[in-house]
Structure formats: C-alpha cells, structure tokens
Design a binder for these strands. Sequence first.
DNA 1: AAAATTTGTGAAGGTTTGCTCACATTTTAG
DNA 2: CTAAAATGTGAGCAAACCTTCACAAATTTT
Lengths: 205, 205
Amino acid sequence: MGLKSSEKRTRRRPKQRRAVETVNAVLDTVIRILKREGFAALTTNRIAEVAGVSIGSLYQYFPDKQAIFAALHKRHIDEIDHLLAATLMEHAGSPLDRLMRALVEAMVDAHTQDPELYELLAATVPHRAAGTRDFAIRLHGAFLHAISSRLKKPKKRRELEKTAFIVTHMVESLSHGVVLRRPPGLSLAEAKEEAARAVLAYLRA
Amino acid sequence: MGLKSSEKRTRRRPKQRRAVETVNAVLDTVIRILKREGFAALTTNRIAEVAGVSIGSLYQYFPDKQAIFAALHKRHIDEIDHLLAATLMEHAGSPLDRLMRALVEAMVDAHTQDPELYELLAATVPHRAAGTRDFAIRLHGAFLHAISSRLKKPKKRRELEKTAFIVTHMVESLSHGVVLRRPPGLSLAEAKEEAARAVLAYLRA
DNA sequence: AAAATTTGTGAAGGTTTGCTCACATTTTAG
DNA sequence: CTAAAATGTGAGCAAACCTTCACAAATTTT
C-alpha cells in the first residue's frame, strides 16, 4: 500500500466508453476481492486478472495502487451524497420526525451491502483527504439547514452548530451500528426505529 | 499484511522482565511508526529497527505481522475496558446524568491521544475477532445493568436491550466524533457536554 | 484511407518484504 | 559452578510486489 501523500501524477482520463468500463471493472473488482479474499489478496496484478484487464490497462488510469482506493472511496461518498440530497429534497415539506426517519433509513440502506468494506475504506483514507472533508462539511450544512428551518423556537447560530454536529454523527454512526453491530435478536426495522427515536429525543430536548 | 484467518501458532510467551519490555517496545514502536511515517512504512524490519531489537526477537513473540496488530488492538481494548469498569465502579451510586457524563468523559480521554490510530485498528481487526466480540458483549452488559438499576419505571427486558444498544453506540461513537470530527470553533468541553446531553435526552424519552 | 489518438497488452525489472535459522548471550534452576 | 532455559541476533533467502515500457489493437479524426 502507500498511505503517504504522494505526487498526484494524473493519468489518462477515459474518453471512450470501453475505457470507462475498464475503470469501473477495476473498482468493482477491488470490492469483490476485498470481500472474497481479504485485504492481503488485493494486489495490483490480481485486481487486473479478476477484472479481466491487463495490468497495463490498470496503470493507464490509476497512477498507483493507493489511487484506486481513493477512487473507490470517492465513489462511495458520491453515492451517499446523492442519496442524502435526494432524501432531503424528497422530504422538503416533511416534519422533523419523518425526515429523520427517512435519513436513518437511507443511510442504513446505503451501508447494508458492504458495511465492513466501507468501514475499512473510511479508516484507510484519511479524514483530511479533500473529498472526505468536503463531504463532511456539506453534510453538516445540509443537516444544519434542515434542522434550522424546522425549529419552532429559533436557536442561536452557535447552538445550531452544536446540534447539527451531534445529529450528523448520530445519524451516521447509529446507522452504521444498526447494520454492523446490532445484537442478534434485534431486527433491522426495530433497530432503525430506535435509532431514529434517539435522534428525535435529542432534537426535542 | 495478511488479514486472513491463519493458523495460530503460539510463540514463546515472555517469562522474564526484559522479554516483556521487548514486547512492549515493539507495540509502542508500531504506534510511533504509524503516526510518524504512515501505514506503508510499517514493515517488520523497520519495526524491529526503530524498537531497537533485532528482527529475530520480534518473531520470538509474534508468529507473524498480523499478530502484532491483534496484540495492539487487544491492548487498546483492555485499556478501555478497565477505564469503563473503573468509571462504572466509581459512579456506582451516582445518578444517571452524572454517570453518563463521566462515561463520555472517560471515553473521550481514552481516544484523545491517537484517535486515528484506533480507528484504523478497529477497521483492520475484524469485528468477529474473539476479543472484539467479548468486549462488545461485556460493554453492552455493563451499560444495560447501569441503566436498568437507575430507571424509575422498570422496562421490559427487550426494551432494555434496545436502549443499551443505542446508548452504548452513542457513547462510543459520539466520544469518537467529539475527538476526531469536531468542527473548528467547538471546544472539546462543549462537545463533550453536548454529547452527554444527547445520551441523556434519549434515556429520558 | 491515412494519420492521430485512445485504449489495451503482459513479460519482466528492480525492489521490497516477511520470515527463518544457526548461533551468541543472558538469566534462572539445580 | 554447571546445565538448562530463555532471550537476543542479523545476514540472507524465497516469494511477492508494484510499476514500467515497447508495442499492438481499436477507435476517432482529418
């Protein structure tokens, strides 16, 4: 691997459709290998082999192995980003409780597929990375706005910031916990509902 | 690396004091290298070099590289374990709000040193690992008991389980978030207090 | 149809890595 | 003091790794 910050030599960007497919095949393959064979088996040559492309093709679009991780992480963040934006849009007129339930639902669904994978990615790609920070800031802003516009008694900016910070993390981490660490005997639906209730309890206090 | 489950050939266990010191030097060095040089620089030879022991000594106590990670993770879990046990003991007679504040405080303090490191460890060592699971179960049990004995209106077992699940994760992840993702302008003390308030709001609802 | 561009190929170089083993040294036990 | 056990050593090997490069094939442009 290589988690150091390195020169960002930009490689060729895919122009034709087949090139885009190559890039996607690579990223999908990384996920598949991580799930089926584990972190240790994730070598550049194996990625190329399983993806059905040559190792040379891989290096046409990724300057080094670490860049593949970054791209994968970005793809995941973008997914979540769109999902949350859509949920916020869809519930623009909904009251707070409906919105929060929907947000928890969306986050849980987004992580139900490969929760462990994205935990590993989140830990592997540092928080300072450009995309990660931007995402966190946008998320925080979106929550702040959503909450602010639904409060009966307006809060001070500073209080709002605190509230948004807590709510953002509650939604994110509880969703994560619901998927990944829910004890046996507790259904997904129940866990989701309880997580939403926790968020709402805080917001109403 | 090697995250696959492998044969657990047990190596020599340190009997003398200097052997224990060797083992600790190795573990401390891993942390130091991770912080200063990053994940990529963490090779067995480099660990030995920085720790001031020979590579041979390292392999006297760790069957392979992965085992070093596991040991480090275990050490961290044990620390948290003792800390939480102590906090629960110390506040055996305290009301819920004092206890929760103390718990958040303890968790935050425990992660203030190297938050990123332990995030990486948590993601690297799978949740199914023996120690990790045991810890989660103990933690859950402790929270359940602490909450249960302080409720005025007793809850059903099933409800209690849910509550303990949520509270455990709130304390854990909010503490983590307070340290690692707190937005600039929000003090540690303020963030801690707000996290505790969130937990209490949920418990009172 | 030719030229230019984009995409795909994979053998192999040069480096690095995890780990062993035969042996030296230190500590404990008898 | 001697034997046995525990601990420490580090050169070096076999394996694995990332990445390059010279070139071929496919596609687009002129």
